[in-house]
Design a protein around this nucleic acid. Structure first.
Lengths: 346, 346
DNA sequence: CGCTTCCATGGAAGCGCTTCCAGTAGCACG
DNA sequence: CGTGCTACTGGAAGCGCTTCCATGGAAGCG
């Protein structure tokens, strides 16, 4: 059964047409009579013919290969949800679009990380690149890829990433704002905020939104304290005590993502606090962990899988010429505050 | 800068040799003088030449493409850790081996799932296939892939998967046994066991090991009750009450994976139980969630990322001819019981 | 009715590589 | 000095496809 696979010439022979005609049928080209098209299709089916993507790529100059790069490192950062969901969405979208995605993990601390990414797209001849945070804000990387003729879509870009290449994401600033409004509504007036890594712009926007909501209630610097984590459970658990012991004595801890919130929750349990009676805690992302911890976490939902799907769709639109916009396009998807059980009235 | 990339002929011209010689250097072939080899290398560097994998594949008949198939569906089953870690390990291994992996997600309930997998490997010309549970036990799928001339490695195969193709995994039966011994040592004599999905053999082996440990203490059917979950948090949370309300009144709940254990934990909290004082709970896998829940979960660690890495290595060994064993090889990696805080003496 | 235009099809070239086979040079041997 | 090696190098063919251009016939037009 290992016998050689049929080629386009086999199909041509069986259906009694020239190779070119089969190619036309394969690629949905025009100028083929319906009768002939049907005959070719039948031969394809009969022979169980599948185009050889390598040959097609070589001849046509289009590899139909996309690259998806993510930074998170399972060693230090078990939160693979965001990346997994993006990938799954991308994979799903590819299924119908006839593209394949090559995944690459490049931990953020990799010394020659930019080169690693560029090497992948040049050596594998990728036509498109999906960048997840924090790479979606790496302007020099984006420009280098673009210069290679590789289309780029950034997922959840912050300020810099936005506007250079196509992008897709939720409005992080509004998400942070909405979450803060919710806590204000519940009567909270003293906050702790656990921010994301320095330079992670989409996380910074969450904080900015939070700040804006406070400002609307005339609450300034005196009303909240900030600590900077690295998105991991560990950092949340580590930072929580500092904030809780601060003289401000916050009644709510707002985190830039769910994993850190889970860490805060764990630290709160460890010191015997009752959640949400003694302390309100919020996250961001609505990752599975948010529903798994006890009590389940109030957070901001974002449709991560759809983000991945859209990223591929936008890329393919550029590649097929369906999108010829001369300026970068940004698709903004909806977020939503999800009320669970870690928030209560003060 | 979008200018065409250099080809092997450019390298040949610059270094003053024939194309074939460059090809020899590229592929580490013999019969090239050191001086010539160095000259070619210099030209490659100078031109920043990268082999065109599509052309190579077309000419040489080797795509250097591997497929990784996993079943878990983020919609119903947020536990992407196992698959993510496998993938990451596989990706890492590929980095040095010059292979690429094509990832595909095929939810288990997909009607034509076998066809979907075969389509991927035939249409993309994949040379190797990595199957994670439950596909690692799908004998007909394995044989179909093998018949296509595609090498197969199964990850954590149960009975059937083992012995048909190369495989890698831990000793699930021993893992279940070890965990049970530990609970017996702590004085537990009445158990609840939350098993995995019917037909998920590696999970069944965990139960078998558990049963054997009990039997060694002369504890039989009367000492434990079983419920069957589907590996999700939800199913653990759902099943726990049934087991706890059973007249046997188990003092420990043993779960076939961590997510279900987290669900049990959540259900236990919901009914006001104090863990581990009122109830001991154990998981399996040592996924990140095990360290994130409160209190952190006692579980059996397995080196998932290494599993993924080994899977690729075994595949490549077959493809390059480094491994010519006529019978399937199985690599068994070590597991270890990780004591955290959901287990206590009875 | 002779002209252009359009549609449907095919022939040939060539994408960038590897593999097969045919050299050529250098050397030891009798 | 011819023979038979071995070590190295190159020419040519061809992998399975797409693209460019040529061809023939059917329609459209004045």
């Amino acid at each position: 059964m290992t016998g050689k696979r049929p080629t386009i010439d086999d199909v041509a022979r069986v259906s009694g047409v020239a190779r070119v005609t089969v190619s036309r049928v394969l690629n949905g080209g025009p100028n083929v009579r319906d009768e002939v098209r049907a005959r070719v299709m039948r031969a394809i089916e009969q022979l169980d013919y599948k185009v050889n993507p390598q040959a097609r790529s070589l001849a046509g100059g289009a590899s139909r290969l996309l690259a998806f790069v993510f930074a998170s490192d399972l060693e230090n950062d078990p939160n693979s949800y965001y990346e997994s969901a993006l990938e799954l969405g991308a994979l799903r979208a590819c299924l119908t679009l006839g593209y394949q995605v090559l995944v690459q993990n490049v931990p953020q601390q990799t010394p020659d990380r930019e080169k690693r990414v560029l090497d992948l797209i040049t050596s594998q001849r990728c036509e498109g690149l999906i960048l997840s945070p924090p790479y979606s804000d790496d302007v020099s990387l984006i420009q280098a890829a673009l210069a290679q003729g590789c289309k780029v879509v950034t997922v959840s870009p912050g300020g810099p990433g936005r506007g250079i290449a196509d992008g897709v994401g939720v409005d992080d600033e509004a998400g942070g704002y909405d979450m803060a409004r919710e806590l204000l509504r519940l009567g909270h007036r003293r906050f702790g905020f656990i921010a994301g890594l320095e330079g992670h712009l989409s996380a910074d926007r969450r904080m900015k939104g939070f700040e804006r909501a406070l400002a609307e209630e005339s609450l300034g610097q005196e009303a909240w304290i900030m600590a900077r984590g690295d998105f991991t459970f560990r950092s949340g658990a580590h930072l929580a005590p500092q904030l809780l012991d601060h003289p401000l004595s916050p009644s709510a801890l707002v985190c830039a993502n769910d994993d850190m919130a889970a860490g805060v929750l764990s630290a709160a349990h460890a010191r015997g606090l009752s959640i949400p009676r003694d302390l309100s805690i919020t996250g961001f992302d609505d990752a599975p962990v948010a529903a798994i911890v006890w009590p389940p976490l109030t957070t901001v939902h974002q449709p991560v899988k759809v983000l991945g799907q859209r990223a591929v769709e936008m890329l393919v639109a550029r590649l097929t010429g369906a999108n010829t916009a001369s300026t970068p396009v940004f698709q903004q998807l909806d977020h939503a505050v999800v009320h669970r059980q870690t928030t209560a009235a003060r």
